[in-house]
Design a protein around this nucleic acid. Sequence first.
DNA 1: CGGTTTTGACCCGCGC
DNA 2: GCGCGGGTCAAAACCG
Length: 345
Amino acid sequence: MVLHLFNISQFFFFFFFLSWSIPSNFQLAGEHIGSAAMNSSSWVDSLDLNASARSLQLETPKETNGSNLVVFGRKLSVKEETGALVEELNRVHEENAKLTQMLTAMCESYTALQSQLRDLMNKTNVEKELSPTRKRKSESGNNDNVVVGNSESSSTDEESIRKPREEIIKAKISRAYVRTDASDTSLVVKDGYQWRKYGQKVTRDNPSPRAYFKCSFAPSCPVKKKVQRSVDDQCVIVATYEGEHNHLPPSQMEATSGSSRLSSVSAGSAAPVKSSGPTITLDLTKSKSGDEEARNQSKPKIDSPEIKQYLVEHMASSLTKDPNFTAALAAAISGRMFSTKSIER
DNA sequence: CGGTTTTGACCCGCGC
DNA sequence: GCGCGGGTCAAAACCG
């Protein structure tokens, strides 16, 4: 019975710890989610789950001590327990702060590395894409964005009047390169969003067809994407995104189970068939301010109640999937029921 | 039955 | 003006 009391206190301690530690972590995730993309929630999960597991583990010796006191020592043990919990809480909080600090440093170095990589890829891409002859205006428009969107400011008034909408869209063009199996003919890039294919064309400069997609939330969401295999390397799919989503991904969980994924989600976890190697993904934002755009895309979203709601739900689902947690929860609840019954007597 | 994909037709800008 | 080529539309087919 006392053992169950300890369990229930662990249970509440766990939630207290969770509610204390989560906001700081989430805020941190919000600061860096632009660079870390969708991975941030996963480390938040693992961090908290590990911490909770550790806290449970650390308290197990007390159970044996408490069980010796049985009935008349209950009040005393609860007091001791409270003191120990406060102590433990302080310790865990300190540890959490340290971890947060480490994480911040890690995220900063990650961001720096990513920007370096982006610069490098932009350089090589500009060299590569400026060499072939450009016939179509739409493609040259993309290249204008490669040259850090100079055309937007330097373009003539006539042009801007003629195609104002296009200019706006061009300002938000980004590209993603996804490595897939060459035998995989489907032009599917799983990026967490749902797309509706509305056309396919064989272009002149590339034997492989180009597929045109609109966001499934269209017309409320104006985002489009073009997907085509690279001329140089048939294993590489080039996805060109136009515009910004004004909503959350329908299911970010689905995005992690695809054959080829955007962002740096671990490549080997759930891609049994199609991926021939590690998925190399580079978000080459071609607009004037690539980093700014990435931040703008992420920052307002992480602060929005939808994201918070999603993270809470994600957290809850992760917890319920954890057998240790469910076992502890069941034990705690049953323990609570038994203890209250015995107190009533 | 509703949503998605396919695919030929159409539109539009550009170069000649 | 005409042809070319990229982008889009929309009806039919397909699918769960």
